[in-house]
Design a binder for these strands. Structure first.
Lengths: 338, 338
DNA sequence: ACGCAATATGTAATCGATTACATTGACTGG
DNA sequence: CCAGTCAATGTAATCGATTACATATTGCGT
């Protein structure tokens, strides 16, 4: 019953054809279920396939059909749980459509990103989803002209590329408004570097909310980190509480940073939220686990990924069709830190 | 200076040859730096490449050379930070050797795993690294015969496949010995289902340490969860503390579980480590962030990934050579929870 | 200036599939 | 019984590279 002779594994369509006593065309038709073949012939072919343990060589097929059925996904950091969940979304719709996902960690490095993008031009991937900073996208936009890709989370409105994301500015404003509603007036911001669209937009949103309440963001309460990991958050917290006039609330642009902030505060014997309130962004799974649980803005991560994949697939199907950008809703999740 | 005409992007080697006034063989030689070509000719070709914006079609090349330069990596859960770090290790050595990594989330599902493995037989990947449960590996071992793959973390000694991992039994024993050294005698275990090699080995290691101290593991203190996420840990903790005689220490086979346990305990108003000590396993980044920081066993995640990739590459280079299994050292990390 | 070796380049087969077109055979109606 | 249809299958070109082998060019010694 099981395959037998397939020792090396290199069984080709012509060997199947020979074994079945038909032509390669017929085998191909059977394999793809296209064209008409007599049931008896089909059975002969199937029997030969089984007997030889034949598996189609997709390289050959892809060469002929000029597609690889691979989707490239570029993320700045696979270790960040925020991206992991988006990737899941991408993967689920891709697989459903018969595509595989090639996941690449670019480290937000344009050089690496370029080398990955090359997979598209060398036909090893059919399309790409890019989650890298919009500034990186912008830098590469010219060379990426003509290859099918979509932007996810980060996008450059000046680049005519389909995108999906959230309204970061409004979301950040919501976050800060919540802090203000709790009576805070001395609110600090921990932001990533301005290469990221979200960093700029969230800062703008914060300033919107601050302005509404007649508040401002002094430079002393504005710290910029160059990584999203826990330690960066802890270090930023340390800086903030050493200021002459320390803030009573901290808005961090990512949950990982916020969690680091809480540790930093704890190490300085400051209680959250009693001494300092903390607000994160993303709502990664970990946010609910820590003590106290993190108040944050939830992004629809899974949907972001799914939508990005759908946009890309649509693009591949109808290259000429202009695909619009889409913004998904966010949600304020009130928990224990603010 | 920049590429010009490359509108569609489908420039082939023959067009370059024509533009440069040479044959395709010469272009190929220039592209691959093989064989000898006169510098003047090389320049002509390079100029043509530049002018046309030529990018080699790797599908064609791979068909001819019968390799895809892709490495398949199968993990049960990309969202688990433990795997994320291993993947980083794999990626770094793969890229260094000119390979791309195709990362796949199997959900530990044999069906999905099989479909991914198919990428190998259909020549879309040259080799695979499998992190799925050893039982899943075992089930597929027969069909995977002949395809080059290696096992990482999970492996089946009965399957003649190269592997890399740690000595889970010894590591778990170390963990439990530490608990015992702290004076604990009522120690509970939260384990995953026995499909995983590490689950069985760590339980054995725990029993070793217990036996050394003349202790046992009553069924009431042994809970099995079917997922590694935070909630599973919290739920398990809830169960344990509701027992007639509650344990004073809990050993969870993964940090994510342990972090969930701590939340569960906190929600039940139990203090860690005063009321209950907690010990995790893996030492993911998050372990140091929570309050109190998690005592755990550190696995060399990055090295695990790097070693797995090296093993695979070695296997691809010399298929006949028998590659040994390798075990990497673990380390007890004493922090605040035990 | 000649012949021979070494160097440089071209020709064409090949990898394993898909697919337009050609061919074969069976069946139909008149 | 024949022409015409339609269904089933085969033939061969094709995708875009690599590469063994053939051929052309060059340089060198004498």
């Amino acid at each position: 019953m099981a395959e037998s002779g397939a020792s090396g594994g290199a069984v080709s369509i012509s060997e199947v054809a020979e074994q079945a006593g038909v032509s390669v065309a017929t085998v191909s038709r059977v394999m793809n279920g296209q064209g008409v073949v007599k049931p008896a012939t089909r059975d002969k072919v199937l029997a030969a396939v089984e007997a030889l343990g034949y598996r189609m060589n997709h390289l050959a097929r892809n060469l002929r059909t000029a597609e690889s059925r691979m989707l490239l996904t570029m993320v700045p950091d696979v270790g960040n749980p925020f991206y992991a969940e988006i990737v899941r979304g991408i993967d689920s719709v891709a697989r459903q459509q018969g595509y595989f996902v090639l996941l690449c960690d670019t480290g937000a490095d344009p050089g690496r990103e370029r080398s990955y993008f090359d997979l598209l031009r060398t036909r090893r991937a059919d399309g790409a989803i890019c989650l890298d900073p919009d500034t990186v996208q912008h830098a590469l936009a010219e060379e990426m002209n003509g290859v099918p890709w979509v932007a996810c989370c980060e996008f450059d409105p000046d680049v005519a590329v389909p995108y999906v994301g959230i309204d970061n500015r409004a979301a950040a404003a919501d976050a800060v408004r919540h802090l203000i509603a709790q009576g805070h007036t001395r609110i600090a911001l921990i932001n990533t570097d301005a290469r990221y669209l979200y960093a700029r937009q969230r800062e703008a949103g914060m300033r919107d909310a601050l302005a509404e309440a007649g508040l401002t963001l002094p430079a002393a309460w504005h710290v910029t980190v160059d990584s999203l990991d826990f330690d960066a958050g802890a270090e930023a917290a340390r800086q903030l509480i050493s200021r002459d006039e320390a803030p009573t609330a901290i808005f961090a642009v990512s949950d990982t940073l916020a969690i680091g902030v809480i540790r930093g505060l704890r190490e300085a014997r400051l209680a959250v939220p009693r001494d300092v309130a903390v607000m994160g962004f993303d709502d990664i799974a970990m946010a609910a686990q820590i003590d106290p649980p993190l108040t944050t803005i939830a992004q629809p991560m899974r949907e972001l990924g799914e939508t990005a994949a759908r946009l890309l697939l649509q693009r591949l199907a109808q290259p000429q069709l202009a695909v619009p950008g889409v913004l998904l809703p966010h949600r304020l999740v009130k928990r224990g830190t603010a």
